[in-house]
Amino acid sequence: MLSEKSSATVRATLPAVGAAIGDIAELFYTKLFAAHPALIRDLFNRGNQRAGLQQQALAGSVAAFATHLLAHPDTRPDVMLGRIAHKHASLGVTRGQYAVVHQHLFEAIAEVLGEAVTPQVAQAWDEVYWLMANALIALEERLYAEQRVAAGDVWREWTVTERVAETADCTTFRIVPADGAPAPAHRPGQYVSVQVELPDGARQIRQYSLITSPGSAVRAITVKRVHGPAAAGPDGEVSNHLHTRVRTGDTLRVSAPYGDLVLADSAAPVLLASAGIGCTPMLSMLEHLADTGHAAPVTVLHADRSPADHPLRGDHRALTHKLPDASAWFWYEESAEPGDGEGLMDLSAVPLAPGTRAYLCGPLPFMRAVREQLIARGVPAADIHYEVFGPDLWLASA
């Protein structure tokens, strides 16, 4: 809870801080990486940094947290905090790193806002920062304890046992722990971080959903190669490295599984909606439903450019057919086959069982559109759960 004195100061200065927070974030990262170059080389996503996306994420999360404290002083934005904490845990973020961030962030605030940062203003925003930081630290340490690892020590070597080309741009990597020990438990829908050493020596990290159910003997991830302007730069460097360099028998450095978009243990009807590579966490959920013989209706929805671009399309159908009361509905922008929809996902003809719990994954505009359709069909907002990847985790609370 923000103190009464600080609340008044934050409320008065939030418009000015909000207007400048993009400049603050940019200067913060410049200072942080100048003092700690290993962070941009081995922890932060270089592609997001070059595109300015990480700066937007920091600005968005701090502003969203402060706004929530003012509007709801007795609560915290736990959805946003939980999602960020899972991401941080998958990266191995530790308590000490928050003090480093604090130092450079507040230097940036003072430099950008100048004389407007009085001792009272600095103290109020310091309180906001540490309320957010301490909440994240507590959540992250709890997540480490649940995986029975020391804080930050999430990495293990895994061996690639098989790679399968799913589409022209998507490849599945089946992996097992290199030391022969059991794979850590995961819940349907969770992801792992994968760290690879690139030709320039950087050890970049990206997150990929596990496509297999918790009961599977092996784990697997499906990686989509990033094309376009990003392919020549950092945004696509890890996916392209995995596609072009990693073969059966190679080892990967993989984190413990994390992620808070998980299939609830419930007998309720389930709807799984995805677009593009967003089908990967849905496949883990679908396989788990098939493994456990889920008896209630299951509705599987997917949208893609074409059937040839639809990763794991055969698995999508095969797992649906294993369930006693399930149906699959696919939409394609081009080359739709008989029985498939054309264009964008349209739920108007899709039967929805009462009490349906919905899970969404895909580009943010897709999820917003599907969420609006579900709400219009009577599905309560509380029963619609969605995954936001990349630097936009703070949007999970939007």
Rank of each mutant, 00 (worst) to 15 (best):
T212M: 00
A295C: 04
I277E: 03
S284F: 00
G293M: 05
Q190W: 10
Y191C: 05
R253C: 10
P214Q: 11
G189Y: 03
Y208K: 00
G189C: 08
H302P: 06
P229M: 07
P307F: 06
Q207R: 09
P269D: 12
A256D: 08
G276T: 11
T292E: 11
L271S: 08
T299A: 08
A267T: 15
A295D: 14
T244N: 12
E197W: 00
H288C: 06
D309H: 08
P269V: 13
Q204C: 06
R225C: 02
D235P: 15
A217N: 04
V254D: 04
G293D: 04
T222Q: 05
T280H: 04
H243A: 15
A303M: 10
A217T: 14
L301G: 08
H302K: 07
R247I: 06
S213K: 00
P229E: 15
Q207G: 08
L261C: 13
Y191V: 08
T222D: 03
L263A: 09
R253L: 15
R225G: 06
T292S: 13
P269L: 07
H288P: 00
G249A: 05
T251H: 14
P234C: 03
A273W: 00
D309F: 01
P257W: 05
L210Y: 10
Q204V: 07
H241R: 11
L289R: 02
S255A: 13
L283W: 01
A290F: 05
R305D: 14
V254L: 02
P229R: 13
C279L: 11
G276E: 09
V300Y: 05
E237A: 14
P199S: 07
G236V: 07
P269R: 06
L263S: 09
A308P: 07
P281S: 04
A308T: 11
G293Q: 06
V298Y: 03
G236Y: 07
L289C: 03
V238A: 10
V238I: 13
A296T: 12
A256E: 14
R225F: 00
S284W: 03
S255D: 10
V192F: 02
P297T: 11
H288S: 13
R253D: 10
G293T: 12
D304V: 06
G215K: 00
Q207K: 11
I205L: 05
D265Q: 15
Y191I: 10
H227A: 15
A232N: 14
M282V: 14
A290M: 11
P269Y: 11
D309I: 05
G201M: 09
D260H: 00
A230C: 03
T244V: 11
C279F: 03
S255W: 08
H241E: 14
S209H: 02
G278Y: 01
L198Y: 09
D304N: 14
S306G: 12
P214W: 02
G249H: 12
L242A: 10
I205E: 00
V192T: 02
P234F: 13
G278V: 04
H288F: 11
T251G: 12
P257M: 05
P297L: 10
V194T: 10
P269A: 13
R225W: 02
I277S: 10
A296I: 05
T280L: 06
S284T: 04
G236R: 05
L261R: 03
C279R: 01
V254R: 01
P269N: 09
V298C: 05
C279H: 00
L252Y: 07
G189H: 02
L252P: 07
V254E: 02
P281H: 01
A290E: 01
H294Y: 09
P214H: 05
M285V: 08
P307N: 13
A290S: 08
L289M: 09
G233D: 14
